[in-house]
């Protein structure tokens, strides 16, 4: 039965966006701080630190999780995905990220990392979500800039695009970033 002493640091190893990583963590270290300070992965944002705002949402083994409500030691052996892992390659946006850009679904961008990570997990589970379903997923995120409407538009369009459907009104929108 492994017992990790409070006063010392312990090696925690997991995969971050497909790459094996490890850091030394006290048991009380939050996953947010492990990612940002321990590993320098600052894409995950820290808002409320009690699970309400959703800015720090990551995926643990493909499922969404609040990094601020997760201990670093709970990540041992897990596959962790953060916003840095969503784009297919450097300088190229994912389908959802490109839709966010087209629809102005972010202004300050503080909440965006968490929302993108949540939607990525949700669309794998429900590739054809209704607007109502998306609104319920987004109820787990606070955005104080957009009023959510452009986020919903971007998510619906990206979901359709990922299903292989053509964009509904492409004419008066900026083309997807390539």
């Amino acid at each position: 039965m492994p017992r990790l002493n409070a006063a010392t640091r312990h090696r925690v190893a997991f995969t971050l966006n497909g790459k094996p990583v490890s850091l030394e963590a006290e048991p009380r270290l939050l996953a947010t701080d492990a990612l940002r300070h321990g590993l320098g992965a600052t894409g995950t944002h820290v808002g409320c630190e009690h699970g309400v705002c959703g800015a720090c949402t990551i995926q643990i083994d493909g499922q969404p999780a609040r990094a601020c409500l997760t201990l670093a030691v709970q990540l041992e052996g897990a596959a962790v995905t953060t916003v840095e892992g969503l784009a297919p390659e450097r300088d190229r946006l994912s389908v959802m990220q490109a839709a966010f850009r087209r629809h102005h679904a972010l202004q300050c961008g503080f909440c965006t990392a968490g929302i993108l990570v949540s939607l990525d997990a949700y669309l794998r589970e429900q590739p054809a979500p209704s607007e109502q379903e998306l609104r319920e997923v987004l109820s787990g995120h606070l955005c104080r800039c957009t009023g959510y409407t452009p986020i919903i538009r971007a998510a619906l369009e990206a979901a359709a695009c990922l299903r292989g459907e053509p964009l509904s009104q492409p004419s008066d929108r900026e083309p997807a970033h390539v």
Partner: peptide, 13 residues
Amino acid sequence: MKPAAFDYIRAGD
């Protein structure tokens, strides 16, 4: 907001 220190035990059973 950070937790106070604690020992962490992974129970096997």
